[in-house]
Write a protein that binds this DNA or RNA. Structure first.
Lengths: 239, 239
DNA sequence: AAGACGACTTGACACAGATCAATGCCAATG
DNA sequence: CATTGGCATTGATCTGTGTCAAGTCGTCTT
């Protein structure tokens, strides 16, 4: 089970300020030292085992989370069990804001995950008189909304091959923000997760990977793919 | 061409404070009188003819908009012309926030539309030291994000019949917020718009309407549908 | 009133992707 | 080292929705 660049070493016993590798990306990036200390005091650092739930749809949304290590899958279910993954959360991502008092989706760990957890009451009191923090939350929400809109275009109007190509390009670019640029794209999630993210079946995802490999656009490696022809590949993802 | 309850009467010559029917729903609902007066001074009240663009994807995003009358369609295009409608904006909705300096989607009027337009510079300066305004923007963004996630589930995992039923139920409930509860659901958008919203073709949408009518769930009327069996209908939309 | 136009509906057929079923692969386990 | 169980792949077939092509209906134009 791969953890990408987010290893298993223990986190709880350190102050976030001194170790948190993704701080510049996270919601708390712009806090001054004194604010950050107060923020830290509100935080619980929580570790989750692979497949463990951070929270589930329809539960009372009492907490928000800043993901610091690992990757989470965010999804919604239909009553009959059909699943739509609405996103994968990376270190630095902020989770748990809901339009109602209950979570509007479920989140669980892929591999090991570590979060900073904040109870909503103290968190709300902390931010509500800090305009720069509110602006940052707005930035995060707006970026997520943009991603959601891109995904609607993908789900509604792209072919299976375009979906897979666009997914790999988008994932590669998001990984680059936390891992730096790499030649092979790590895929910590399974084929079923990719299928449920792209609105396809696992078989179609598998066939499409194979097809892209036959066409010499990618090579499939354990836990990832290597992109052979980034030019042609980006073109396929955009079209 | 229907305008629902948002008639064509001129708006520009009134102050928003004295006439704006959707003020309680809008971004500016919680401003105190003095703030609101300043806010008003920054606003241009702009009227758009049917099919006219408010703004287009990739343009420099110099303004934000509060929709006060009429309905707008928000969409993204692929290079080959495939279109995905990412939402329909109703009075009270707030448009134009983008994750970059350019609009991430296009918006144009369905029927006649009136907006309050704000240039981004003054708008940002106005809100950046008003926590209650920033909180309200967060609420709006979070609500929109929730809608986008529901739509991903719809696009990725629902059948054509479920898509159409869920669309009608969702639209009916959103209309109820501005128009009040009605027995017949007005549909100011055309079949092609509905198709591009649901990730279907116009033919499939048309056939599905006909099928729902044959099954005595709805009656198709000019510019809308009447829901006959709300119980059974809501069930279909949820499942 | 006749024509033209745009929006919608309907039918026949095609195909991308789903479904069903078998097989392969490998890591964990006793 | 054989067995198990979880993924992933591949093949054969089916089907929901797309595509193509007529139609219908209502409204606007002249």
């Amino acid at each position: 089970m791969p953890h990408l660049a987010f290893p298993n070493n223990s986190c709880e016993e350190f102050r976030c300020a001194t170790h948190c590798a993704v701080r510049p990306l996270a919601i708390c990036a712009e806090l001054n030292p004194v604010e950050h200390q107060e923020f830290e005091r509100m935080a619980q650092h929580v570790r989750y085992a692979p497949k463990e739930a951070l929270f589930s749809e329809d539960e009372i949304a009492d907490s928000v989370y800043s993901l610091t290590e690992g990757i989470a899958r965010l999804y919604k279910l239909l009553p009959d069990g059909r699943r739509q993954i609405i996103g994968f959360a990376l270190p630095g991502d902020f989770l748990g804001m809901a339009p109602t008092s209950r979570y509007s989706f479920s989140a669980d760990a892929i591999g090991t995950v570590v979060t900073c957890r904040f109870f909503k009451g103290p968190f709300t009191r902390f931010i509500e008189n800090k305009p720069h923090m509110l602006l940052r939350m707005n930035e995060f929400a707006t970026r997520e909304l943009g991603q959601a809109q891109d995904q609607m275009l993908l789900l509604g109007r792209r072919s299976a091959e375009e979906k897979v190509a666009a997914f790999l390009v988008g994932w590669r670019d998001r990984l680059a923000r936390v891992e730096g640029v790499t030649k092979t794209v790590m895929l910590p999630m399974g084929r079923q997760d990719i299928a449920d993210f792209l609105g396809l079946t696992i078989e179609t995802v598998s066939r499409t990977f194979t097809k892209l490999e036959r066409e010499k656009l990618i090579v499939i490696v354990p836990d990832g793919v290597r992109v052979l022809d980034p030019k042609r590949f980006d073109a396929l993802a955009a079209a």
